[in-house]
Design a binder for these strands. Sequence first.
RNA 1: CGGGGAGUAGCGCAGUUGGUUAGCGCGCAGCGUUCGGGACGCUGAGGCCGGAGGUUCGAGUCCUCUCUCCCCGACCA
Length: 569
Amino acid sequence: MRFSRLLGRTLKEVPAEADCASHQYLVRAGMIQQLAAGVYSYMPMGWRVLKKIEQIIREEMDKAGGQELMMPSLQPLELWEKSGRLPSFDKTLFVVTDRKEHKLAIGPTHEEVITDLVSRTVQSYRDLPQMPYQIQNKFRDEPRPRGGLLRVREFFMKDLYSFDIDEAGLNESYARMVQAYKNVYTRCGLPAVMVEADSGAIGGKASHEFMLLTESGEDEIIYCSKCEYAANTEKATSIKSGAATTEPLPVAEVSTPGITAIDALAVFLGVRPDQTLKAVFYTADGEIVFVMIRGDLEVNETKLKNLLKCTDLHMGTEAEVKGAGLVAGYASPMSIKGIKVVADDSIKLGSNFVAGANKPDTHLRNVNYPRDFQVDILADIAITRAGDTCPRCNHKLLSRKGIEVGHVFKLGTFLSERFGAYFLDKDGVTKPIVMGTYGIGLGRLLAAAIEQNHDEKGIIWPLPIAPYHVYLCPLKMEDKHVSKTAEKIYTDLTEAGIEVFFDDRDESPGVKFNDADLIGIPLRIVVSQRTLQNNSVEIKWRKEKQAGTLPLDGLTEAITKLVNISGTC
RNA sequence: CGGGGAGUAGCGCAGUUGGUUAGCGCGCAGCGUUCGGGACGCUGAGGCCGGAGGUUCGAGUCCUCUCUCCCCGACCA
């Protein structure tokens, strides 16, 4: 490809709307263009990267036993009513109405369609297992698209679904997919880490996310300094420290005028935060819930949401709290009636806590569970933080930021039962097919690759997903010797199967070098009067500081070798 | 959906208390000079000032409504 013919241009200035590195560089390098919020065109240069990623994924899915197919984006809304997932998708579903007033969802994912499809196709255990997949654009009306390609409303996803005869089969498919995912990220030159993830309100059995570690990531990963434990902070657990338990003392009221926050309360009464109990109110699907947790900890809303099996969870508003007869800041689990009480298991670790008295300006000392109050649900609902203790090996937990670039999920039989996806087993017994679902967001992976691989000059593509292998950069094209040599190198390399981006523009060296750095093609070849004096060219890896030289003689072979070695790393 | 910000040339921005023909930089086109880290000169093209309504002799500027985009929170690949 010649730069002079490329559709797309590089920009010197940072686009006003771009905040994160990947967004800025993708726009500045002319790889994407925005059409609407969370809706982007891929320009030819960006599209090549996406195609590279797609091909790597396709190869690994096929190798793992996947079969590529293509399902429609238009999905009758009835399918969503049937699956029961309409409420949880709710407004993120784009819905269109056809001329007959029939409603169709524009596919945000394809569990419904594939399960329906498989239910009509698979009849016997002999037909299983199956791993159909597709690579296609999905549509989700995200409440807030952000970060360029990081979260968009129309995006490319590889979605694979596994269908097995039993749990053991699912586990096997799942393991195979996990391996395939690891292969994908490794081959892309993007090492991702696998972490335990929240399985959501659907109530699946297990779920893992693949994270690309980068400071700009919006997910937090908790991992152990010693063992293999790693989890999304939404899911992470820890061994909670226990304050020393002492003999239960009689409950006593204490006046705490104007003091509502835990820190202030602890200082005022001369106790540590973990000697207090905190009350928080949530509204779960319209019902007010009283949540108790030890004062030094905080509520993990994802855990709480799963526990309550609700679709909408938010902090109780002032009106909701008052309406339930609670006194914010001084609420007590004692004397609560008719309100669901959920408590973190930390309330058992310690004794003689300070808690609210359920009247203004007053707290209670020496509150003990279960002597003084009861709860409806007692479970782990606390946020795990770096510095906490690993639930597996007792060592310290650490945390890093990451971008979720893949998610695998054991679904079970929930959907197959709803869609009548049954099969006849060896013994002639009808059973529901056991499902798994596995997604990779391609555009997100592309953006995450940049977040992880860039410098102040621009993108540094890993070679396997780079738009081109070589940036051929002749300086002073008017010089016949230079331009002729460059043309020949272009032809020779291209014929040898090297992907060359030829900067044939009549631009000054500075412009060319800066564009080369911005676009981030891994290997740069400079042809100039200076290099030709020695019958050589300059070569420089984008990721290296130093440049080297190669003789013109045997250049094609030398470059081929370089690209092949680096391409299979 | 709650909170904050912004819409003026392809991009980044300026535009005073309302006052002629709306500017600057980059980019773009032509000519010439330059050529190893965003060169220079000259000439030129390019605007429904997001949209609708209003106030006014007069609106980019004031008022009302509306649309869009970005950022922070609740969601996701």
